[in-house]
């Protein structure tokens, strides 16, 4: 898998670590992680990611709000987002896709197949866009 630059926002440090191992070791991606939406908004410009990987339920700022604010940053209006959620309700999945999510991954996720899932969704999006 490629050199995708992924900005990962997740408030649970353990899940963050597992995702890091999965995405870097197995997926070979370039990953930058933040524990909150605020931090992500600060770091986004310096990191300039190809993709946002966002947890939905976070205490300060929920994932969907973070995404809307990230999109408002210069150069990121077309950066795609993949959401991870523990709420497996189909109405929420529909709402997130409407918001522009290219994929919604249900927790608990499988760290062995996570990189593949992300790459597949990103490729499909890129092909469609080009």
């Amino acid at each position: 898998m490629g050199n995708l630059k992924i900005l990962h926002v997740e408030d649970d440090a353990d899940i963050q670590e597992i995702a890091k191992l999965s995405l870097e070791t197995i997926g070979g991606f370039n990953v930058h992680q933040c524990l909150s939406g605020e931090k992500a908004l600060e770091d986004a410009a310096g990191f300039s990611p190809d993709l946002f990987l966002l947890d939905v339920m976070m205490p300060e700022m929920s994932g969907d709000v973070v995404y809307q604010k990230l999109k408002a940053l210069p150069g990121h209006q077309n950066t795609p987002a993949i959401f991870m959620t523990a709420r497996a309700q189909s109405d929420e999945v529909v709402a997130l896709k409407k918001l522009g999510a290219i994929e919604v991954i249900i927790k608990p996720f499988d760290p062995m197949t996570l990189p593949e899932q992300i790459q597949t969704a990103f490729d499909a999006y890129s092909n469609e866009a080009s």
């Binding site: 353990d14 899940i15 597992i18 999965s22 523990a86 927790k107 608990p108 996720f109 499988d110 760290p111």
Partner: peptide, 14 residues
């Protein structure tokens, strides 16, 4: 409940 299960399952899977 899902949050710790995600960590446990993820860690074990890796």
């Amino acid at each position: 409940l899902r949050t710790p299960v995600t960590s446990i399952k993820g860690a074990l899977g890796l």
